[in-house]
Design a protein around this nucleic acid. Structure first.
Lengths: 232, 232
DNA sequence: CTCGTTAGGATACAACTGTATCCATTCGGG
DNA sequence: CCCGAATGGATACAGTTGTATCCTAACGAG
């Protein structure tokens, strides 16, 4: 074997180049030649390590899913109060909304893939199944919390989890478009968690600091375009 | 003037053809020639009535916004109990989530436009400002309801509205991808409205008499009923 | 009638796409 | 030593894209 090369490493580099393009210029800007240029290799190399553009796109989607799972796991592990159900929920939801430049790029790419999958069955088959496992996991967790008396008995754990995940999804959209900052999004999540767990039960944040005020159009659209770049 | 033709009508037909393609096959499938074929005219006609593809896309975005506004207005007008704030909220949120084939196609096209606008400033400038006016309107409305005692005083009207709109947005995503049915989405919305207005809370003001008193047990089964997936 | 503007058919063109092919290296095992 | 597989550079090809150009009808105003 001459010039033995680590194929997995090459493929990983190309996949990363693809995701960099998809996250900054969109999926429609992704072409074989663009990927080659972004990765600093020739077109032939891209063709050599991926038989198809389709295979390349699937690899990108897979990597994106892996990154998302890694991010959620990391966030949950980082939360010191992992024992509290509320802490887990806050960590998971906070990991869904883009919170730094990298997660913002990945969210962009994910959105692009999601949209493409809506009209491309081949992509849809390649899997956008990230949320389902999360939903089940959190529902079990919240149900246990309810039996422990942490949330009111008239709450529906499954509905609450589904709603919170959909909320995080919607907030992601607004953060990506610059309508909302990441901080505003997490404040909103905290507000809803306060409603769920009771504000006095959780020492994390106050109930009404978002502006319980009267008039509507006071302060919105705080940060236009690229705003979500901060550490956490 | 020979062969006088209604330009607005021609442009409308072409815009509708564009949106039909965008809603079924995605924005990346929209080309000048495809639009021409879909509208049953020649390529030249498309070029004749729209100087640019850019102009065509902007026209589609404008029309999409107009349809959305029309749909919300229609839904709100249709709600018999328009006087109740809860009824207005339910109508607006129910009009955001796609509820029939046409609104589903439009939501698809809207999602495609939204994604494209994330990486194309020209499209972003052409306006995705539909939600802002809604948010202000509903916030004013909900603030008034709070002062009338329809919702608990520790609720933050602005946060509630922002959350509900983000929720509707997230639910739209899941409905489009087939993860959830429209009915499941509205049940979830009703569940959250129950939490907000209080299912057993008696109407304490003159502003509302019907609608706000939806009882709790009615929608306790708001579980989204998704297939449980195994995790490993 | 004729003439100039309006409405569109037919075609061209350069750029870009994914994919395929041809060919030159490189190097480990025989 | 050397042969064949591994690696990749260069280029070709057919299709699609947005846009531009050329040219022919149509028809109301003069």
């Amino acid at each position: 074997m001459p010039r033995q090369v680590d194929h997995d490493e090459r493929r990983r580099r190309l996949t990363e180049a693809l995701l960099r393009i998809a996250g900054t210029r969109g999926l429609q800007a992704v072409s074989m030649r663009e990927i080659a240029a972004e990765a600093g290799v020739s077109l032939r190399v891209v063709q050599y390590y991926f038989t198809n553009k389709q295979a390349l796109l699937e690899s990108g989607l897979l990597e994106l899913g892996a990154r998302g799972r890694r991010r959620v796991r990391q966030r949950v592990a980082d939360a010191a109060d992992t024992l509290s159900t509320r802490g887990v929920l806050a960590a998971v939801l906070g990991a869904i909304v883009p919170f730094d430049e990298q997660s913002r790029l990945d969210s962009m790419a994910w959105t692009a893939y999601y949209t493409a999958a809506l009209t491309d069955p081949a992509l849809a088959a390649a899997g956008l199944t990230l949320p389902n496992a999360l939903e089940d996991f959190l529902t079990v967790r919240l149900t246990a919390a309810q039996q422990a008396g942490d949330i009111a008995p008239d709450r529906d754990p499954r509905a609450e989890v589904a709603g919170l995940l959909a909320l995080a999804n919607g907030l992601t959209s607004s953060v990506l478009s610059g309508q909302r900052s990441y901080e505003a999004a997490t404040k909103l999540i905290d507000y809803y968690l306060d409603r769920l767990f009771g504000p006095d039960r959780a020492p994390r944040s106050q109930a009404n600091e978002i502006g319980a005020g009267a008039d509507a159009a006071a302060s919105r659209g705080a940060s236009p375009r690229r705003s979500a770049r901060d550490r956490h």
